[in-house]
Deep mutational scan, measured.
Amino acid sequence: KYFGTAKARYDFCARDRSELSLKEGDIIKILNKKGQQGWWRGEIYGRVGWFPANYVEEDYS
Rank of each mutant, 00 (worst) to 15 (best):
W39A: 04
K23V: 10
E43P: 07
E58P: 10
C13S: 14
E57T: 14
F51Y: 00
T5H: 12
S21C: 06
E43W: 02
I44N: 15
K29T: 12
G42I: 02
Q36E: 14
R15G: 08
K1V: 09
I30G: 03
K33S: 04
W40G: 03
K23R: 12
I44A: 15
K23M: 10
A6D: 03
V56E: 05
P52M: 07
Y45A: 15
E57S: 13
D16T: 11
Q37W: 10
K33L: 01
F12G: 00
C13W: 12
T5N: 11
C13P: 10
K7Y: 11
D26K: 00
S61F: 08
K1A: 06
A6T: 01
G49W: 02
Y55R: 11
K7G: 04
A53E: 10
F12R: 07
N32V: 09
K33F: 04
I27K: 09
G42L: 02
E19M: 14
R9P: 00
W39I: 06
F12C: 02
Y60H: 14
A8D: 01
C13V: 15
Y10W: 12
A6I: 01
K29E: 05
G35T: 11
D26P: 00
F51Q: 03
Q36F: 11
G25V: 00
D16F: 04
K34W: 08
L20S: 02
L31P: 00
K23A: 09
N54M: 10
R17H: 12
I44G: 04
N32L: 08
G49Q: 01
V48W: 05
R17F: 08
T5I: 09
A53N: 06
L22F: 15
W40D: 03
D59V: 14
A8Q: 00
D16H: 14
G46W: 01
S21M: 08
I30R: 04
D59F: 13
V56I: 05
L31I: 14
Q37R: 13
G25W: 05
E43I: 05
G4T: 12
I27R: 10
D16C: 13
C13D: 08
K33V: 06
Y10I: 12
G46H: 04
D59S: 13
K1C: 07
D11C: 09
Y55M: 13
G49V: 01
I27A: 07
Q36N: 09
Y60C: 11
E19A: 00
G25F: 02
Y10H: 15
E58W: 07
N32M: 09
G42W: 00
Y2P: 10
F3M: 13
R15L: 05
Y55F: 09
L20E: 01
I28P: 02
N32H: 13
Y55S: 10
R9Y: 02
R17G: 13
R47G: 04
K33P: 06
E57P: 00
R47I: 03
F3Q: 11
A6E: 01
G42P: 01
K34Y: 10
W39Y: 13
R9F: 14
E57F: 10
K29F: 05
Y10T: 13
C13Y: 10
R41A: 07
I28D: 00
S18G: 10
A14G: 09
L22N: 01
L22H: 06
D26Q: 08
Q36A: 13
G35S: 12
E57C: 08
L31A: 02
S18Q: 06
L31T: 11
W50R: 04
A14Q: 05
L20K: 03
S18W: 09
E19F: 04
Y45G: 15
G4W: 11
C13F: 14
L31Y: 10
Y45L: 14
D59Q: 14
E58D: 06
Y10K: 14
D16A: 09
